[in-house]
Design a binder for these strands. Structure first.
Lengths: 248, 248
DNA sequence: TCAACTTTGTGCGTGCATTCACAAGGGCTT
DNA sequence: AAGCCCTTGTGAATGCACGCACAAAGTTGA
């Protein structure tokens, strides 16, 4: 989806098993699968809280809003963790997916830009709940520096390198205006951040080895607009109706 | 990516050049292309403001962060709007993409859930700038009802149907806690909303004919976590360099 | 112990998306 | 007007993802 500047050492991911024969390539999980694992994980957490101990691919698929074959294939990339005739053990599967996603450790996250969105992100419970910790808030406005948001003090952008180093941040979230986003991005990378989540409505470029993902509110709306318009014109066609359209 | 409950008329792409009269089946634009059009549009707006009048697919590709062949193929779905040897006319292309995305009209958007995130969305400039208007704010907390945010009054969720009808809302944004998101979603659909953008961390289901997209902050972070972990273990392998590493 | 039942794991066909590579088309210079 | 250069538009090849369908593997009950 977004850029992944992983170096071309993907071949080396094969050389994992000790002896020379089977070399089952456990790595190489498809991007589409990685994107769904968090969805499964959330459904499983919810099931575990409800007291469910095992679940079939069919039921998990329903909870995650996907197809059961997809669930089975996705989970098969992690290993054979199911029991035929029974299903998957919920807590064991939670453990395995968490491990695969790297959520057994708590990543320190820095949020840059403490405006409306940055505030909302800092207070957003979903961040802290599993695997992430807002370790730093950074802004360019000196009048905001020193302010406390949800237990974290706001630092100035000029101190970014120091703050990032001290708090062990490896993931940066950009919630600034578009105009300064690339500059902030460059500073984050220079400070040693290797994963960036960009909320600013602009295209960023990062050097190889740094992962970049984006969340763009207005793009999502525009995609909805496209389909909305299609529906509107489809209705117009149906109104005239010469019997060519095939609705479901 | 996310669910699109559009009927399965994608097959009609081929059956268009049949014996029938020239039905304008310029439709059938791939989802992946639709998702990129807003990116091109933003780059073009920026170029127009900078005074650029024509642009090549190569330059537009650079501005949008994609490959130039992709730009040409994407734009070719809209029609032949380029001039060989020259490139594309910026303002004309803006017009065509805007029209295709349905941005020549201003869609009325309702935001449900006026918490931190809802507030941030309501004040987010990017919404209003092009094609969208926050026409309603809706919350379940009566103590918030009547509050004004960025020129719009907060209404109670029980009045949703009325508000939606009066303001002509067709797109709903869900920024509520996960627990009530499906209920809110059902109410929006019942009120006549046909496109929904979900920020709540839960899987929603909608009836056919309603488009649903989701934005999930914690999922994006977890995907970054996955790659971050991969990078970390790749470094470990390089450090030992022995080739004898057995994961886990 | 065995047979019936349930559910996983996966081979395989299909369709979409990406990218390459190049002919067709248009402007520009001489 | 003619040739050169530039860029578009698109066939074709490749790769990825999805989902069907089924054998393998485990459980349950008699």
């Amino acid at each position: 989806m977004t850029a992944h500047e992983q170096p071309a050492n993907t071949a080396s991911t094969d050389a994992a098993t000790a002896v020379r024969e089977p070399v089952k390539v456990r790595r190489g999980i498809p991007d589409a699968t990685v994107a769904r694992l968090p969805v499964y994980l959330r459904a499983l957490h919810s099931l575990a809280e409800a007291g469910t101990s095992t679940i079939s691919s069919d039921a998990l698929a329903a909870a995650a809003g996907v197809n059961s074959a997809k669930v089975r294939k996705d989970l098969s990339y992690l290993g054979s963790y199911g029991t035929r005739g029974v299903g998957y053990d919920v807590t064991y599967l939670i453990h395995q997916i968490s491990r695969e996603l790297g959520l057994t450790q708590r990543w320190a996250v820095a949020i840059v830009g403490v405006g409306n969105l940055g505030h909302a992100l800092a207070k957003y419970g979903g961040f802290a709940t599993r695997g992430f910790r807002v370790a730093a808030l950074i802004d360019a406005d000196r009048s905001r520096v020193g302010e406390w948001v949800d237990g974290v003090a706001v630092s100035h952008v000029d101190d970014m390198a120091e703050v990032v180093r001290e708090t062990g941040v490896s993931i940066g979230v950009i919630a600034t205006p578009a105009g300064v986003a690339q500059d902030v991005c460059d500073r984050l990378v220079a400070a040693g951040v290797t994963s960036i989540l960009n909320f600013a409505p602009t295209v960023l470029s990062v050097p190889p080895g740094v992962d970049l993902r984006k969340v763009d509110l207005s793009i999502e709306l525009q995609i909805l607009s496209f389909h909305e318009q299609r529906k509107a014109s489809a209705l117009a066609v149906l109104a005239f109706d010469n019997g060519e359209v095939v609705p479901s």
